[in-house]
Design a protein around this nucleic acid. Sequence first.
DNA 1: GTCTATAGAGTGATAGAC
DNA 2: GTCTATCACTCTATAGAC
Lengths: 209, 209
Amino acid sequence: MSTAPMKDTIRQAAIDLFYRKGYFAASISEIAAASGIRKASLYHHYESKEALLFAILKIIMDDLMAFLEASLAGVVDIEARMRAAVRGHVQFHLRRQKENFIANSELRGLTEAHYQDIVRRRDAYERVFQEIIGSGRRQRVFAPGDDKILSYAILTLCTAGASWFKPDGRLTVDEIAEIYENFIISGLKRAEGEAVCGAAGGSPSLLRV
Amino acid sequence: MSTAPMKDTIRQAAIDLFYRKGYFAASISEIAAASGIRKASLYHHYESKEALLFAILKIIMDDLMAFLEASLAGVVDIEARMRAAVRGHVQFHLRRQKENFIANSELRGLTEAHYQDIVRRRDAYERVFQEIIGSGRRQRVFAPGDDKILSYAILTLCTAGASWFKPDGRLTVDEIAEIYENFIISGLKRAEGEAVCGAAGGSPSLLRV
DNA sequence: GTCTATAGAGTGATAGAC
DNA sequence: GTCTATCACTCTATAGAC
């Protein structure tokens, strides 16, 4: 073991520590120690702590998009496309748990320029889902709704799985993916006898606002 | 303005800073400055930074549970109960955005004992949703499914709204609540002609694991 | 209840030897 | 490419005057 390039060793150590303690709570010394070197040596591989965070985020966002495109390749039926996209998203998030968690919680650690870079990649990814929802809606396979809000809802739903999933828990990745797939497809269609029902009704007053 | 007790002023300043920068990135000096006092004075009101975080989290969790109970009071029909619970959750999260965001992202800043305390409150809250799902399933109003996973899915879904909602955006709190309500109720029931469909199919290989 | 001053530790990052 | 040593700074928290 440990014949991997030091740059990768450091990245993996950082992924683990950023995941467990958070970006600001994890220190360069800790990351260096977990990589088997002194902190000064770490700066030979990454020019700053922020550069290390950015490297982690860029890789996971690129891999995420590549995985989605591979999951959708050759799938044309609209319901099948949505199922494939959801399944791909869930699988990727459950298997690269730590990095995905960081990508969803540590964007505040980035410089403005790097932040914009990552957000652009995330937007491009979300757009794929919005396009599937939109064309499903136009084909009348899905009920009317707001593409953006539904895409956020679907993505967060699946992403959240990554935060409680335990690899040796009672459900496998594929079982979880299937539960989500069915829930989402049912949600996008309209349940039998569904009224568009004016909701509201009185809401209790908010305490301590 | 500013006739409120200093303890509350500090808590509000901390909520704002923990939300914008994160618990570890926000400093006691900044919180004190935003409260109009020096940092040493802050320790007269809270014995540590962690105590301040815990105070924020305890209040928001208690208010959250109280709001859910008020939302469900007197509602008996199972679908109506789920709608009321979802609507209450969305309303509360959209109106107390910052504190709820902190409650969902800064639990790592707590001591072990305080962490357990907050998690217990969160579990009790989730259990209310699980009971609604479970009895809906037994009444055959909802399709078969895993109560816990579905409750996590529903809660995260709605909670996520709090992270992108803009009070002066194009949708109101009630419109968003209604979109989520419909999506969730449809998801819990089963869309017409829904097969329980063996999912899977080949999945592309994961890059760089 | 707020202040000034400071203790004591840890931070990200750099210099320069090997 | 890794090391030791250190800089300059910030952090949480405390002591004690007013």
